[in-house]
Design a protein around this nucleic acid. Structure first.
Lengths: 343, 343
DNA sequence: AAAGTTACCGAAAAGGCTTTCGCCACTGTA
DNA sequence: TACAGTGGCGAAAGCCTTTTCGGTAACTTT
């Protein structure tokens, strides 16, 4: 019965189909559906109903082409499997998604050729902006200054100070870890962390040692134990520490993974946690932190918030409001059983 | 010096700018840049150089509008933070990315309203296809049959058998776990797994018990221990099992998380792994499996391969080659120290 | 030298939408 | 009755690209 007003087979309905079905012109149909006020209520109704009947879905490509903005952004990451991209992406999607922005996700796999290729593709698709998520906190090379769209670097800052970067403040995070432990009455604090070639390891260590200095405390174990970012190192380093017969009453672990290893080693020595030794990690990686014995206190780097902030800064930049430089985000301690007795 | 051939400020160069700069027509410029053979080599050169000089980037929006295909696909997930979406996404990006397809990533947060909203947005952007990734292996509701673009369901199958679904074969995975253990000489095998309301738990359990039956073996512990998908349950269930004074020599854990809990409990009882009791998990979650003592043998569900396959099926469907129904992917056992002595 | 090929190139349409501007038919006022 | 003012609608331009088709010039053939 509605046969003759249906669009050609296979094609989805166009605005022109809707206009024809409603008996109005293209222009009027457009105005009716977009809520412009130059159309009578009765006419608008007719158009809207025709659109529904035809399951009309406006072609965003055509619209973007005309508007000069696509309502899309590119998210360029280098470690999808890693721990960092995902929450940041969630935060960004969150900040964008409420509205009308869609996100292109690209993983460069750490390959700068592939990254360049992705950037080209995204620019060709006329994204309105780019968020570049690093895989570590070490500064990364800039995509360049004249990219036709604004770029925000998240997690890993750009080497170019003229770019907009949002990072977590790892020095501050180290400080918070120590202050939390000191607040819990600990004074003999050691620090076991990851690979010293990572800025994250060095920054957190600086935060830890500076804060101990400031409070007039010695770093237990004599020096920061740098190693690698995994459980075996956590176990090994903890054993090392205990074998030195140090009077350690708290350990700052450079990551939740390391912390898990530390917990295991302490467990093996029949030490009570937190009564004998308190342990705190970084990342607040729920799967690791909430399943340990006891649950692990951890410094939460608020990566989702980082993502949201990056999205927000990108919006601002798209409106021409660019604030170059590195912006840092404060972390917070999530307290669990490994630093406070469950009573 | 090149001032008069530059496009208007702010705008990026269009093909028309390039044509003007090269002193040819729009049509010729297009042909030259797209490798058509109706243009003299010298002319092509002139155009290509002009394009480079102007940093011309072809507008994919206009191109898509004309071609009727956008070269984009939508990836609709419901658990970005979960374990499953990411590898699948990697695989899909992999299969697509080599060519010229970009991926829109959307997270519905388990909310069907939001999902519907995302689908609308993606259709409006004229994606060429959709991949829907579930957050568990339980069947999910279909997006519907008349969606104007092909849809492939990955990990969680669609309830509608007319849809195309790709899933991991969890029954088969359970079988492989048991056969691996039996192959390692074990005969008193128990099964500790997650929440029985999950199809994944039930399917793997079925694979385990069926295979034991077939081999004429009894399930140690009397029955499958259903619980929850985390370490504490793994620890608790393992203790339960040992307290029953069973002669267990192997445990199939329903996930790597549960397996970690099991390992801890066995450790507490001074049992040697794998000499006294072998342990195998599911998921092959590297962070968990490779950092345990000993490293954890695990059934790898090959989620990346699942993603690749989904992308491939989507391609085929885009070419009109649709194969409705549920396709299953076989898993494989990754052998590590928890089932084979380290030497 | 006239006719027929070839090789290059350009004009124009198409794709779906938004927006400006002009047109028409009203309404209210002098 | 004539006028300005207003509300509702349509024609057409424009966004950027690809592709078809027709045209021009140079070349070959008899």
């Amino acid at each position: 019965m509605t046969g003759e007003e249906a669009p050609a087979r296979g094609r989805s309905a166009t605005l022109s189909d809707v206009a024809k079905a409603a008996g109005v012109s293209l222009a009027t149909a457009s105005k009716a559906l977009n809520g412009k006020d130059q159309v009578r209520a009765e006419t608008r109704d007719r158009v809207v109903r025709a659109a529904e009947r035809l399951a009309f879905s406006p072609n965003a490509l055509a619209r973007s082409l005309l508007a000069g903005r696509s309502g899309t952004v590119g998210l360029l990451t280098s470690d999808l499997e890693g721990r960092f991209s995902i929450p940041i992406m969630m935060g960004a999607e969150d900040a964008f998604g409420a509205g009308r922005v869609s996100v292109f996700l690209c993983d460069a796999r750490g390959d700068s050729i592939r990254e360049q290729h992705h950037v080209q593709a995204l620019l060709s698709r006329r994204v309105d902006g780019l968020i570049v998520v690093g895989s570590s906190t070490d500064p990364r090379s800039s995509l360049g200054r004249n990219l036709s769209v604004p770029v925000v670097y998240a997690y890993a800052p750009s080497e170019d100070p003229a770019d907009v970067s949002i990072v977590t403040d790892n020095v501050d995070a180290g400080r918070r870890a120590v202050e939390h432990l000191v607040g819990a009455g600990r004074t003999r604090i050691a620090h076991i962390t990851g690979d010293a070639s990572y800025a994250a390891a060095r920054d957190r260590a600086k935060g830890v040692t500076d804060t101990l200095d400031r409070l007039g405390l010695q770093l237990a174990g004599g020096s920061v134990l740098f190693g690698s970012w995994n459980e075996p190192w956590g176990r090994g380093a903890a054993r090392l520490l205990l074998d030195r017969d140090e009077q350690v009453d708290a350990i700052v672990a450079g990551s939740d993974q390391i912390a898990r290893g530390v917990l295991d080693a302490l467990h093996d020595r029949q030490l009570r946690i937190p009564e004998d030794i308190a342990v705190i990690g970084f990342d607040n990686w729920t799967v690791l932190a909430t399943n340990s014995r006891p649950q692990l206190t951890s410094v939460d780097l608020r990566l989702e918030e980082l993502g949201r902030l990056a999205a927000q800064r990108l919006f601002e930049a798209m409106d021409g409001d660019v604030r170059p430089g590195v912006e840092t985000l404060q972390s917070r301690v999530i307290t669990r059983g490994s630093t406070t007795p469950s009573h």
